[in-house]
Amino acid sequence: DTFTFTLDGIEVRLHGASEELIKTIEELLKRDIRWEELEKWIREWEK
């Protein structure tokens, strides 16, 4: 599955994202998160 969203005018596609990761990103997007914050968060998630 591919999860697609737009952040700061950039279309982002995550391939093979888990349901948990998708739900977490959706929550972060509701908080009007900035790209830099999401990028940092995703790097931490990957560890």
Rank of each mutant, 00 (worst) to 15 (best):
F5C: 09
E39P: 08
E37L: 06
F5A: 05
E36G: 07
D1L: 15
L38Q: 00
E39F: 13
L7F: 14
F3H: 02
E26V: 13
K47E: 13
A17V: 13
L7M: 05
D32L: 05
S18R: 03
T24P: 01
G9H: 01
G16C: 07
A17C: 09
I10D: 02
R43L: 11
G9P: 00
E36W: 09
L21H: 05
V12C: 07
E36K: 09
T2L: 10
K23Y: 07
D8L: 04
L21I: 11
D32F: 06
K23G: 08
E20Y: 12
E36R: 07
I42D: 01
E37A: 09
D8T: 01
F5V: 13
K40R: 13
I42A: 03
E27C: 10
I10L: 06
E39T: 08
I42C: 06
I22M: 06
E20N: 09
T4Y: 15
I42K: 01
T24C: 08
E46N: 12
K40G: 11
I22V: 10
K47P: 11
E19K: 13
F5W: 01
L38K: 00
K40L: 11
E44H: 10
E26D: 07
L28E: 02
L21M: 14
I42R: 02
L28G: 05
T24W: 13
W45L: 07
I22W: 03
E27S: 09
D32C: 06
L28Y: 06
R31Q: 13
I22C: 04
L38R: 00
R43N: 13
W45C: 10
E19L: 14
I10S: 02
K40M: 11
H15L: 10
K40S: 11
L14Q: 00
W35S: 03
E11M: 05
K40N: 09
E20G: 09
K47R: 13
L21K: 03
K30E: 10
I10Q: 09
E27W: 06
T6L: 14
E11A: 03
E44L: 07
G9Y: 04
E36Q: 12
R34H: 12
W35Y: 13
E37N: 07
T2S: 07
E19H: 12
I25W: 01
E27G: 09
E44P: 01
I25Q: 00
E36I: 13
R34M: 07
V12K: 01
R13I: 15
E19M: 13
L38D: 00
L38E: 00
W41D: 02
F3S: 00
R31D: 09
L28R: 04
V12W: 04
T4C: 08
E20D: 11
T2Y: 11
T2E: 15
E20S: 10
D32P: 07
V12G: 01
K30P: 01
E46A: 13
E26L: 15
W35I: 11
G16H: 12
L28I: 07
V12N: 00
W41P: 01
D32A: 09
I25Y: 01
R13N: 15
G16N: 14
W45S: 04
T6M: 13
L38S: 00
D32R: 05
R13Y: 14
K23M: 11
F3G: 00
E26G: 08
D8V: 01
D32S: 10
E44A: 11
L29S: 02
E19Q: 12
T2I: 12
E36Y: 08
D1F: 11
E39M: 15
H15V: 14
F5G: 03
W45K: 03
T24D: 10
F5I: 14
V12Q: 01
A17Q: 02
K23E: 08
K40F: 09
E20W: 11
G16P: 12
L28N: 02
T6P: 03
V12A: 02
G16T: 04
L21Q: 10
E37P: 01
E20R: 07
E39Y: 13
D32M: 06
H15P: 08
S18V: 03
E36V: 14
D1M: 11
E27H: 07
L21Y: 05
